[in-house]
């Protein structure tokens, strides 16, 4: 066991336990707070993978924006579903069984290939080099310039669509 492996196991355990809390807690607000712990754990996993840019983006976008917007939505809609009510539907036993079967099949299929036993060693290049290559690839017309522009179009569409859908079309009239 190298120190890095111990760090990985600790982070993975924290991530998985908090993810279990996210899907099982009755109080949806607490679930959203545990989601932040899960996202933080995934950010540390990204850092362990030497994807430093994505570790930063994970904290900025997921924790800074998505988790906060989810908490806003919970606060806006909270009083309608009381925390004492059962939060999972009647067929959760079947769902749990199917998901367990899926996960077991998935993991057992993984171990049928030799590739996954590869030990990931530290990359030879520095972190900045991969970020520079990533930025140049995104703006290279022969590379990924089109997906990059499409992504900005998608975000613009989401912005306009979100404003349009959430807009009160009856001019502030309630009920």
């Amino acid at each position: 066991m190298t120190p890095l492996q111990i760090v990985f196991i600790l982070v993975a355990l924290v991530t998985i336990v908090s993810a279990l809390f996210v899907v099982s807690l009755r109080k949806i607000f607490h679930a959203a707070l545990w989601l932040i712990v899960t996202l933080m754990g995934v950010a540390i996993i990204f850092a362990l993978l030497e994807a430093s840019f994505f570790a930063a983006v994970q904290i900025l976008v997921y924790i800074g924006a998505i988790a906060i917007i989810l908490i806003f939505a919970i606060m806006l809609t909270r009083n309608i579903m009381s925390d004492e009510e059962v939060q999972i539907n009647r067929s959760w036993g079947i769902v749990l069984f199917l998901v367990l079967v899926f996960t077991v099949i998935f993991i057992s299929q993984l171990s049928s290939s030799d590739v996954i036993n590869t030990i990931l060693i530290p990359l030879e290049f520095q972190g900045q080099e991969s970020i520079i290559a990533f930025g140049e690839g995104l703006l290279d017309p022969a590379g990924y310039a089109l997906p990059f522009e499409l992504a900005s179009l998608l975000l613009l569409g989401a912005l306009v669509g979100g404003v349009y859908i959430a807009m009160d079309k009856k001019g502030g009239e309630n009920k």
């Binding site: 190298t2 993975a12 362990l48 993984l110 171990s111 996954i116 036993n117 990931l120 060693i121």
Partner: peptide, 9 residues
């Protein structure tokens, strides 16, 4: 140091 399989699992 960490096997690829750990991440996938």
């Amino acid at each position: 140091m960490i096997p690829l399989s750990w991440y996938l699992i």
